[in-house]
Write a protein that binds this DNA or RNA. Structure first.
Length: 234
DNA sequence: GAGGAGATCGTCT
DNA sequence: GACGATCTCCTCT
């Protein structure tokens, strides 16, 4: 996508969301039964849903544009492959909850749990298209959205990656691991505005060494907020 | 634009 | 003690 096009489209999208942010507060969370299925089915249908963070009176929100499915104890790449531990305990609980883990000594990543209690599927949220609370997200990421010349680059860097989006939405293990994402009473939840999603593609998951060729990464084709180099985004 | 290396610490073996 | 569901910066082409 042309940089100018991205900028104008995003600004239009953002302003329309600011006008309708009251509507966001009224959106129903995606119900728990949605997650009570095979992560392979949940993952592509999670695209287009909205991850919402409440920070006091402010709402930070982004549309999910890239995910990965992890199949639990049948998946060598899953943290749950070797059974329950202190770290992955949430994955073995009921569906629709946040599994937040810490990796590479400095990053958090967030999953939503799938399948009934005892089975450990999850979907990793890899990228968001920012919709509301962009200034707060930039602040959380220690980035500056005010620089006109840097706007497009900074905008894309806000939430295009699993650790980036966690930083933007201030998601940490201490604060959010085990949080109910299917409840509007939570300060972190997933909502649906029934927006149309474009073409969806599947590819191998990123950054893993086991089951590295399983096509369990799903993303919206052509969306500029999908993570990774341009050749991986389309 | 592509590729490589360093950062940094929780988790697991 | 080794590794990792990552990101950023720097160098090279």
């Amino acid at each position: 996508m042309h940089k100018g096009t991205l900028k104008s489209q995003q600004k239009a999208s953002q302003s329309s969301w600011i006008r309708t942010s009251a509507r966001l507060r009224k959106l129903q969370p995606v119900p728990r039964r949605f997650y009570d299925r095979d992560p392979k089915l949940v993952a592509p249908q999670l695209l287009g849903k909205i991850l919402v963070r409440r920070e006091g009176r402010k709402l930070l929100a982004g549309r999910i544009v890239e995910v990965e499915a992890y199949l639990g104890q049948s998946d060598p790449a899953s943290h749950a492959f070797r059974g329950p531990t202190d770290r992955n305990r949430v994955m073995f609980g009921p569906p629709g909850f946040a599994y937040v883990y810490f990796t590479y000594g400095m990053h958090y990543c967030v999953n939503v749990t799938c399948l009934k209690e005892g089975a450990a599927g999850a979907v990793l949220i890899r990228a968001l298209e920012p919709l509301a609370g962009l200034e707060e997200m930039a602040l959380n990421r220690d980035l500056n959205l005010a620089l006109e010349t840097e706007y497009v680059r900074v905008l894309r860097a806000l939430t295009s990656g699993p650790a980036r989006l966690c930083e933007a939405l201030a998601i940490t293990r201490t604060r959010d691991d085990g949080k109910d994402l299917a409840s509007g009473d939570s300060d972190l939840w997933i909502a649906s505005d029934r927006a149309r999603v474009g073409e969806i593609a599947a590819s191998p998951r990123v950054g893993i060494t086991q089951a590295a060729d399983w096509p369990l990464r799903f993303y919206i084709v052509g969306n500029p907020f999908v993570s990774g180099p341009a050749k991986r985004r389309t």
